[in-house]
Design a protein around this nucleic acid. Sequence first.
DNA 1: ACAGCACTGAAAATGATTTTCAAAATAGTC
DNA 2: GACTATTTTGAAAATCATTTTCAGTGCTGT
Lengths: 142, 142
Amino acid sequence: MDQISHFTEFLNRKGLKNTNQRMLILKAFLESDSHYSTEELYLKLRAAYPKIGYATVHRTLKLFAECGIAAERHFGDGQTRFEPVTDQEHHDHLVCKECGLIIEFEEPEIEELQEKVAAEHNFTIQTHRLELYGLCTDCSNN
Amino acid sequence: MDQISHFTEFLNRKGLKNTNQRMLILKAFLESDSHYSTEELYLKLRAAYPKIGYATVHRTLKLFAECGIAAERHFGDGQTRFEPVTDQEHHDHLVCKECGLIIEFEEPEIEELQEKVAAEHNFTIQTHRLELYGLCTDCSNN
DNA sequence: ACAGCACTGAAAATGATTTTCAAAATAGTC
DNA sequence: GACTATTTTGAAAATCATTTTCAGTGCTGT
């Protein structure tokens, strides 16, 4: 099932309505491979649909997070960012402190070790967050 | 060198002054093993020194972060938390989503894998952040 | 078309963080 | 110790992201 039907089904299940704005926001959100803050997505959308409101974008992003098609992220710049979640494959981030570049990566071995640690503390992991901060290739050469 | 002389040396190096408040805040901060938000540390300090200001606590915590004796953390509750950094030994966190319990752990194997991933992307790691969110023993039994 | 809700967008409210500014404190010099 | 230049402090105001409010609009089923 694709992300769009996933979302519409979620709306139905919760008795929420499938509106024009929600679809616009969803499409713009999925289209991109970047990590949007509410503000950034709002500005992008407003270019095409000037009447859209900031609050609507924000509320819709929260809905995405709630239904699992978006994940909230904090990279330490004071803004919440949202990224599309494509199925269950999980990835983490390399963040360049110089230029802000964000690279995604996956490392199953790390995930296994996380489970091990959790088991040692009788902890049940639901989600996790791993970010490596440093300098990307370009920035470490300058 | 202990944390206190480390901080005073940092102040001198930056041409900043070693004040009463800064020492009070530093001691209260180091004394604890918890992860303070500005607000929490401010409230704790105010109990003993009613005249202290929120802004002073906040500015001083920022100084700690700048000089390396504190690390800023975001656990997703909208507040920035600070924790004492004791030398270079690094640790990560298990965070209970139910009761807010924070457990620290170290896992050198994970750190090695992080270096491997960074190397694959020609990335130079400066710091990292790993948090596992889920349920602690008590909360998963209820 | 109508009724009942949910949704939207603008504006206001909130909450954390940061800045401002006049008064107080500090470090260096005499 | 007194003097001076500079920094710090604390209270209040400002800022920034996020959240809520509310009147008007739109959707869905009857």
